[in-house]
Each structure stands twice: as structure tokens, then as C-alpha cells.
């Protein structure tokens, strides 16, 4: 979080984390394509020729002033592929909130679990308490036939009731903005509590 008192801006960083190919970049692309141009910056994607994220995607959103304060959101994705671990940790630095994008397909369950555990480990290494950082879980790819049930996903990922979980089909945009609004609301209420 960065508070610029002269410009009266509140800058917050939100990171989309999750295993390879779970749909993190797809979320940002959808947000970019469905936001009024005056509210967003360019979508920056550091990716391979095959469209896989190599470092991060970055998108900035801003809203008009609220009570004289301008909220700005810096959205990042991490690269999900196993060998980009070092990059994932760098992107998590300074995160005020995390969206964990899980792949709902049954055969990806181990990847989801490992990725969530790794994330908590990196947060700890960065001095951020993984249990108090605002977290929203998105169960993506609900359109696929092999998608596991929501309660199964919740229990496999050991998500307690206080963690909001949303279903999505990011390619079609279903659940994408709901996820974004949920994490922003969570981050802002955590800021109010902790400031």
C-alpha cells in the first residue's frame, strides 16, 4: 500500500496467484477488455511466444475520488509454471491482497494444493502473514466436464469458511468481476482495520 497524501491517492497491490494454466492471465485480459479506457492503463504482459507468463502481467485500474481519496489498484499475475518459482515470489512482494485462481479440473488438484502451499510459504518469507492477508479463491474453468464440485474443492484446499470462494469461467468472463470486487472490498476493509 502506498498513500500519496499530496495527490490523495490510495494505491493497492493485488496479485493473482495459482498453478500453471489456471486462468490468471485470462482474468486480467477480460478485465482489460471490459473496463472503460479512462479507468485503466495498458495491459503489460511479460510472456513467452506461446503466451505463457514468464514474469508477470500488470494492469492498473483507478476509480474516481471517493470522499476525496482516489483508489488505484495495481493488478499483477504470477507465472504459474513450476520453474518460475523465483519470479512468483518477487511478484508477491508488497501484495495487499491475493486472488488464488484454482483450476477446477480434478486432475489438477495436486497442482492447486501445492501452489497454495507454496504461496503461503513465500508470503511468510516476505514477512507477510499468510493467514491475515486478504485472500479470495476463484474456482475457474467451471465449464469443463471434469470440474470437481465446489465443496470437494473447498475441503481439498482446506479453505475455512471465512475465505470467500467464487466460481468462474474466465474465458467467458463469468465470475471475473465478482472476484475482483470481492478482493477489493476485502483489501479495503483490511486497510481500514489496520491503519
Amino acid at each position: 500500500m502506498f498513500i500519496n497524501r499530496r495527490l490523495r491517492e490510495l494505491n493497492l497491490k493485488i496479485v493473482y496467484y495459482g498453478p500453471a494454466l489456471s486462468g490468471k492471465t485470462t482474468n486480467l485480459v477480460y478485465i482489460y477488455n471490459h473496463t472503460r479506457p479512462e479507468l485503466r492503463g495498458d495491459l503489460i504482459s511479460l510472456k513467452t511466444r506461446e503466451d505463457r507468463t514468464i514474469f508477470f502481467d500488470y494492469l492498473q485500474l483507478e476509480l474516481g475520488q471517493i470522499k476525496g481519496l482516489k483508489p488505484k489498484f495495481n493488478l499483477y499475475t504470477v507465472p504459474g509454471q513450476v520453474y518460475y518459482a523465483a519470479s512468483r515470489k518477487l511478484v508477491l512482494q508488497g501484495a495487499d491482497g491475493v486472488v488464488f485462481v484454482a483450476d477446477s479440473q480434478t486432475y489438477r488438484m495436486v497442482d492447486n494444493v501445492t501452489s497454495l502451499q507454496d504461496m503461503r510459504g513465500y508470503l511468510r518469507e516476505l514477512g507477510i502473514d499468510p493467514w491475515s492477508v486478504p485472500l479470495v479463491v476463484q474456482f475457474n474453468k467451471r465449464d469443463l466436464p471434469d470440474a470437481a464440485g465446489v465443496s470437494t474443492l473447498r475441503s481439498l484446499l482446506r479453505l475455512n469458511r471465512s475465505i470467500p470462494c467464487l466460481e468462474s469461467v474466465a474465458t467467458e468472463g463469468a465470475g471475473v468481476f465478482d472476484t475482483l470486487k470481492t478482493i477489493i472490498n476485502l483489501v479495503v476493509s483490511s486497510v481500514q482495520k489496520n491503519i
Partner: peptide
């Protein structure tokens, strides 16, 4: 350590939520 910026109070979250409904 500065006091929280003016405006960042209880209502802020609610106003932000409705602003998001309108903007996104």
C-alpha cells in the same frame, strides 16, 4: 507515523463498493 488520511473511514468501503458496481 501519520494519522489515517481523511476520508478513509467506515463509509469509504461502502461508497467504494457502490462505485465499483457502477464502474465495472
Amino acid at each position: 507515523v501519520s494519522p489515517p488520511p481523511v476520508g478513509l473511514d467506515e463509509d469509504f468501503g461502502q461508497l467504494l463498493a457502490s462505485e465499483m458496481e457502477f464502474s465495472f
